[in-house]
Amino acid sequence: MKRIIPLLVCLFVYYGTAFAQSFSKTLKETPGMVSYTFRNQFAKDVPGTLDKIKAMGVTNMEMSNLFGKQASEIRTWLDERGMRCTSYGVNYDDLANKMETVIQNAKALGAKYVRVAWIPHKGAMDLAGIQKAAADFNKFGEQLHNSGLTFVYHNHGYEFQPHEKGTLFDVLMKETKPEYVSYEMDILWVFFPGQDPAALLKKYPKRFKLMHLKDLKKGVEGNLSGGTPPDNDVALGTGQINLPAVLKAARKSSIEFFYIEDESSSAEQQVPQSIAYLKTI
């Protein structure tokens, strides 16, 4: 009995600590934040904005911009606050023509993932555009892989044009190499063009590594344009997307990091609401 009691105490401490550190029943860690959420604040004061985000309990950043600073500067500010950058967002041209700079910045930030969120195109996306992007993504992904980084593409809605028995997004998945190309699911930009984020996760459980948590204002109708006014972003749990279903599917996928993104002018008020809501799921 004397031996059993200390063992029970150790188990209680271990599992009690693990439970205390769990953010919610569906998310082990507090979600990260996409810097674009606070783009206007970051443009004026990077360290001060990081302080605001840290005060919300968020320590993981996806930097979608360097805001005129050096990557090494931002890394120093993150380190000083016990924060980290796990994903670095760049544009298509950077990957095509400035790969060495992208790699240097990503490593300086400490990021694991390099993300692009837009395929240049005019009018509706077509098969030729998707096939060219797939070939480019394989090339970008191999270069990043060889430097110890992982390439991810962030969907934006226009990729879901119907094609044969599926969509152009299915073509993109089929023609990109899993060893070099992964994906970041933006759930709003899956839902907006009429798709089901949970179903897409179940269809491709191993391809998605990152997720943007967003919600779409009730009453807003979607389309395949890849665009909607920023103020159609609302606090999580107050819009149209079934977040519990999405997160349940995400638990069975290969997603490593979740990030809150709120593009609206009310982000400072809505983000705390979103964090509080996620804790209830």
Rank of each mutant, 00 (worst) to 15 (best):
G194P: 09
G82F: 03
L247I: 13
Q240L: 14
I5C: 01
H121C: 08
K279E: 00
V13E: 10
T49Q: 07
G237R: 15
K107M: 04
V234L: 12
P230C: 12
I187F: 03
T49P: 06
F258W: 10
S35Q: 02
I130L: 02
Y153H: 12
R84D: 12
N91Q: 13
K174T: 12
M61P: 12
V13G: 04
V190P: 03
M56P: 05
T150D: 07
G166N: 06
A96D: 14
N97Y: 11
T150Q: 15
A43F: 01
G16C: 07
M211A: 09
Y14K: 02
L149E: 06
K279F: 02
Y92E: 10
R39A: 08
F38C: 04
V181D: 05
F140Q: 07
N40Y: 01
L144E: 07
Y92L: 11
R115I: 14
F12K: 02
G227N: 15
N146A: 06
D126C: 05
F257D: 10
L243D: 03
L27C: 05
Y113L: 07
K25P: 00
P6R: 06
K214H: 11
Y92N: 14
L66Q: 14
K2M: 05
S264L: 01
E175V: 02
G166S: 05
D94N: 13
